[in-house]
Design a protein around this nucleic acid. Structure first.
Lengths: 198, 198
DNA sequence: GAGGCTATTGTGGAAATCCGCAGAACCTGC
DNA sequence: GCAGGTTCTGCGGATTTCCACAATAGCCTC
């Protein structure tokens, strides 16, 4: 199960939210500052983020920006006491998942968090597949990659041989190595794999 | 050039926005009510929508909902005088492109509208391609569609013949008809076409 | 220098695809 | 009824792909 990270400099709020979510069987970690979370964050950190906008030191928005800059795609739900439409709009357009004003409805917030956690999980499953794919592509040699691109572009071996200025036989060898390393049996399967089709 | 549709029941605002956009060479049509726009709307209506939230009769949000229900994907920018975060968040999560509070910065609004118009145009170009594709698929016979699906799934003719309980030769005939009607030469090209790859 | 990886090419055969020619059964519309 | 579209099949040959066996050569590492 993935974890909800609550970042709020108000200990009372962290505790209250902690109780709320633990009572719903959602694992929670509280962070007393944006910097504390950012220091602990790694690309492997999973779950979702419940983030107060106004905090001493680094604001929630700034933390969001820094996470994005570091390539994070963890879903972020902002929590704010004083509604400000331009801030909300800006945050959502940057990719925040939600923006909730206090006081909030407990059940609604829990639902949104659970939705965000599920999204993060699905996203990670997808990315794991992509990572496996990337590893397989990385195991190809230069020449094999060239041949693969042309195969996936729909070229016949004969044409590929001409374009690369090598013999058809060599293309065949590379092609079969590509199929083997990419673990597919046909050019169509390879195409589906690389274009991310179902 | 596509058109900006301004829906606002305040004639003074329609006029002011009309002047603003016409001075920047953005074609504008003003609508005095949500209902008036909705009555005139067809799936072929192009451009983007600048939509006041609070209006007599149908509200901007309700118009947005109705357009979505009718399959519109025209970009919508909401304009509102009295900021309300939950409304803004809800609109953006439903797919609104932007949510701007009055008073707004003229240049910024113009930029956002131009961006929305460009987006609509690109979207329509993509959809036009998809429509041509749909027409080609529609010209296939039942059997040809079945064979096509299996070809794109990476099956060999031999396997397809078994699965459909027909001879390999028949599969070959259907397959070549599919290639002809879909205007491709190889199974890989067909796969790319159907999976929407570059 | 031996061993491994990469890239290259050839021979030859099995399997699969591509394609024209020919024919038949079924159904629909004029 | 006949023309036309759809579905089905076979034969034979050209083209392409797949694959095992075999070999040469450059580069890098131990």
């Amino acid at each position: 199960m993935t974890t909800l990270h609550i970042v709020d400099d108000d200990e009372a709020i962290r505790d209250a939210l902690g109780w709320l979510f633990q009572s719903r069987n959602v694992p929670v970690i509280g962070w007393e500052s944006a910097q504390a979370f950012l220091d602990a964050w790694t690309p492997e950190t999973t779950g979702c983020l419940l983030l107060d906008i106004r905090m001493d030191g680094m604001s929630g928005l700034e933390l969001f920006d820094r996470l994005l800059a570091q390539g994070s795609r963890m879903p972020v739900i902002f929590l704010t006491g004083h509604g400000d439409v331009p801030i909300a709009v800006g945050a959502l357009k940057k990719g925040a998942r939600d923006f909730v004003e206090k006081p909030f409805n407990d059940n609604e917030l829990v639902d949104r968090v659970i939705g965000a956690l599920a999204f993060d999980h699905d996203q990670r499953v997808r990315e794991a597949g992509q990572a496996g794919l990337a590893a397989r592509i990385a195991s190809l040699t230069q020449r094999e990659r060239q041949v693969m691109e042309l195969v996936v572009a729909g070229r016949l071996n004969k044409v590929i041989a001409e374009e690369l200025g090598i013999s058809m036989r060599t293309v065949e060898v590379h092609r079969s190595h590509v199929f083997e390393k990419m673990r597919v049996k046909t050019a169509v399967e390879l195409t589906r794999l690389l274009t991310g089709a179902g």
